[in-house]
Design a protein around this nucleic acid. Structure first.
Lengths: 115, 115
DNA sequence: CCCATTATAGCCATAGTGGATATATCTATA
DNA sequence: TATAGATATATCCACTATGGCTATAATGGG
């Protein structure tokens, strides 16, 4: 499966990939991570999150893991997700697309920084 | 009106802003410009284009211009559009948002280039 | 004159999203 | 202990953005 075929990604999907890139996270932790990362400007709704997760598992962008934290830090309601190698490829392709858009905007004087 | 309030922009809207940033263009020319700029990967459908244009005029991101090219190069069917100062502000804000996403992806090892 | 291309526009179906609601568990505190 | 509020997952409905199709019409080359 070609990573480019999934581009452009839905906004929620890209943010979720960033959230699980450095460590496994459960759904609710993903919402909070995105809120922190965007400085509070993006608050993923629960509806969007859980449907996005379902789709992303089907697309093999993320997988649910069996590994749980130590029982004293765990919460049995949680379901943890991990990015897949394919998920990494897709995230790289999408951020490359963003980088290209930023370059074009700069060339047109539509971005702060060097013109 | 705060430019940030319109973010994140629909994908088509941002591409249209880039297309009319350097010169006035008519609808069909916008479609071709986007196709060229994205290396053929993004082909805006006519339906998306004209509905996006209507919305963007209502939001004061672009305006229809009276200026026409010399008659020998003109085509009376065409309607030309120009980016507004507010449209520039919004495009800058959106490309700033993209740049921030690329930075985060880089920090997570999810972008080619410097880690 | 004919036909492909250019050009704008409306219609219908689908995908992604937000907001509301439901259910249940965990945690702090009164 | 009781209970309120935060945590956690999930589903439903409505709305927006998009793609694809169709309609209409003018332009330009053979």
């Amino acid at each position: 499966m070609n990573p480019e075929a999934l581009l452009p990604l839905p906004a929620a999907t890209f943010h979720i990939l960033l959230a699980v890139a450095d460590q496994d996270r459960h759904g609710y932790a993903i919402i909070r991570d995105i809120e922190v990362r965007t400085g509070g400007t993006l608050r993923l709704s629960a509806g969007t999150l859980y449907r996005s997760i379902q789709r992303m598992v089907e697309q093999d962008l993320i997988v649910e893991t069996d590994e749980r934290p130590a029982p004293e830090f765990d919460d049995e309601r949680r379901r943890y997700y991990r990015i897949t190698p394919f998920g990494r490829q897709v995230a790289k392709a999408e951020s490359q697309r963003f980088a290209s858009l930023v370059e074009q905007a700069r060339a047109l004087g539509l971005a702060p920084g060097r013109p």
